[in-house]
């Protein structure tokens, strides 16, 4: 049963991921990404990481992809209008793909996973919290800071500048 579910979810994830990359219609691609995320969430559930699965659904499937769709629809991209790939793009993607493959292969060949201690065998909420607030406190803070910077950047970039005077704000009579 678990095997059957694993193959189903893995197939779903991979097939929809291919759809994301290959599809010319941006809406199809975004929905492919959604399906792919749902597949990954299913794989997480099979690994007893229900929390991770639902956070993935909540944040990425529920909000981030919705925003993607939002933008795609607002910009109204017409499918088929893209230019053919340039040689540089093809070369770069080939090198990138090769590096990724190499990375995965070397991970498979040489890597040594840290042995699981008894406390971490079952990923309870407490374990997640403890790790996030002790061992990985700095990375979490850094990621949060990065997101803040990105958000401020968006606010700065999207401000309408009207020449010398202050940017117009809404609600002025």
């Amino acid at each position: 049963m678990a095997n059957f579910l694993f193959y189903t979810f893995a197939l779903l994830t991979l097939a929809s991921a291919v759809l994301v990359v290959m599809n010319k219609n941006a809406v199809n691609a975004a929905l492919g990404l959604l399906l792919s995320l749902v597949g990954v969430a299913g794989l997480f559930v099979l690994l007893d990481a229900a929390l991770l699965a639902f956070v993935l659904l909540l944040v990425y499937a529920g909000a981030v992809v919705a925003l993607f769709l939002f933008i795609i629809m607002l910009l109204d991209t017409t499918p088929g209008a893209q230019k053919p790939f340039s040689r540089l793009t093809i070369a770069a993607s080939a090198i990138g793909g090769a590096l990724l493959l190499l990375g995965v292969l070397s991970l498979d060949e040489r890597s040594v996973l840290p042995s699981l201690t008894a406390a971490h065998a079952i990923p309870t909420l407490k374990n997640y919290a403890e790790q996030l607030f002790t061992t990985y406190l700095l990375p979490v803070q850094l990621v949060g800071f990065m997101l803040l910077v990105a958000m401020l950047g968006v606010i700065v970039l999207s401000r309408k500048c009207t020449g010398e005077d202050e940017p117009k704000t809404e609600g002025q009579p």
Partner: peptide, 17 residues
């Protein structure tokens, strides 16, 4: 589920699509 409320929020957030 141990993550009960999170599951409710996560799945119902998909309703937006």
């Amino acid at each position: 589920l141990d993550v009960g409320i999170l599951a409710v929020f996560a799945v119902s957030s998909l309703g937006v699509y």
